[in-house]
Amino acid sequence: MFNRRISVALCMMLFGSAAAAAQNGVLIKSETMHAKPASSSAIVGSLAKGSTVNVIAKQSGWIQISSGKAQGWVRILSVRTSAAYTGSAASDIAGVAQMATGKRQPGQIVATAGVRGLSEEDLKAAHFSEAGIKELAGYKLSAASAQSFARQGKLVKQSVAYFPDPNANNE
């Protein structure tokens, strides 16, 4: 009995540290793995849709993953990463409790006093704020200001066409 308790505790500790150390993910489409974060680099393997992977690194559109002995880079949108749970435990617990009772109240924070939500009821009851709309207008910027801001960040415009709807041919 005592041993079992210890092992349970150990398991939890291991679990916890593992989850904190590495991010896991799942391939949402079958992918070829590349040696480098570029489609022109050598192909070093392939993984099937649904494969569980460990995330090693990310770099501009590519993600380095490993699965068993296989390791390589795939496009970042091919991997859905699992939660590196960042949400507060309190709100998670509150949410679970709400789900359990079936009395979840949209937009209303139950776990924290003084925190404001934005529920349908709030929206319905809203009245026009002349002061608010004027305040908002006060922050409006010219195109020139935005261009200057972009230059400061060394943002370089790119030519990218909109993507077609991937489901367009299915209708």
Partner: peptide, 9 residues
């Protein structure tokens, strides 16, 4: 968490 009220709407 899907039950978190902050994402309900």
């Amino acid at each position: 968490a899907p039950g978190d009220s902050s994402v309900a709407l």
